[in-house]
Simulated scan of single mutants.
Amino acid sequence: MCSPSSLRRRRLMLAMAGATVLVAACGKKPEGAAQPQEIESATACVLDGMLLADYPGPKAQIFYAGEARPQWFCDTVEMFHALLRPEQVRPVRAVFVQDMARADWERPRGHWFDATTGVYVAGSGRHGSMGPTLASFRAESDASAFIARHGGRLLRYAEVTPELADLSGGAMHDSRM
């Protein structure tokens, strides 16, 4: 028997596949591959309007089908929250996060990679824009080194659950509000 989170992920994958088939059936050109964009001084989080450049920790961007620009998230927890909600059925073209082994934690810029190929650290002593975060890494060895310094546990993309992407109480951790 499948767990509820496993069923949600399967529904999301099926919705994405169905949308791709519908687009092809309508005779429309498929969208080109999305390329990560860079944070600018006015880049704001889609959920709360916070300016990404003003906060530490890993950031994320989601490209939805039919949209040329990404929706930005000031934290990876917010990204996972958006993707793992049961009502999320919009087809996703690409999801990018930052490699925190390469990006500066306090002022992260660049070092974007496909979020689905990464590893994440939950429960570390490092905080992102809204408190506890899921630190993103391209390489497992970098995530393991981060765990040795800051604690936490390693997770693959598919292992992140809705419970780990809980946004309740995030504002309590924001010291800049």
Rank of each mutant, 00 (worst) to 15 (best):
A101F: 00
A101G: 12
A101T: 00
R102W: 00
R102S: 05
D104F: 01
D104L: 08
D104P: 02
W105L: 11
W105D: 12
W105R: 11
W105T: 12
E106P: 01
E106Q: 15
R107S: 10
R107C: 05
R107H: 15
R107I: 06
P108T: 09
P108Y: 06
P108C: 07
P108L: 11
P108E: 11
R109I: 11
R109M: 10
R109W: 06
G110W: 01
G110I: 00
W112S: 01
W112D: 01
F113D: 04
D114S: 06
D114A: 07
D114I: 04
D114H: 06
D114C: 05
A115N: 07
T116I: 07
T116D: 03
T117E: 14
T117W: 02
T117P: 01
T117R: 15
T117L: 12
G118A: 05
G118F: 04
G118Q: 07
V119T: 12
V119L: 05
V119I: 02
Y120P: 01
Y120E: 07
Y120W: 11
V121K: 08
A122Q: 14
A122L: 14
G123Y: 09
S124I: 09
R126N: 06
R126I: 01
R126V: 10
H127S: 08
H127V: 04
G128T: 14
G128W: 11
S129L: 00
S129H: 03
M130V: 03
M130I: 03
M130F: 01
M130W: 01
M130T: 02
G131V: 06
G131S: 11
G131Q: 08
G131T: 07
P132N: 06
P132K: 13
P132C: 08
T133I: 12
T133H: 09
T133F: 06
L134K: 13
L134R: 11
L134H: 08
S136A: 15
S136W: 05
S136D: 06
F137E: 03
F137W: 05
R138Q: 08
A139P: 00
A139N: 14
A139Q: 15
A139R: 15
A139K: 14
E140K: 14
A143I: 11
A143T: 13
S144E: 14
S144H: 02
S144R: 15
A145M: 10
A145V: 12
F146M: 01
F146C: 00
I147H: 10
I147S: 13
I147Y: 12
I147F: 12
A148Q: 15
A148F: 04
A148M: 14
R149S: 14
H150D: 09
G152T: 06
G152A: 10
R153E: 13
L155Q: 13
Y157A: 08
Y157M: 00
Y157K: 02
Y157P: 00
A158I: 15
E159Q: 15
E159C: 02
E159T: 03
E159V: 03
V160Q: 08
V160M: 09
V160Y: 12
P162T: 13
P162S: 10
P162C: 07
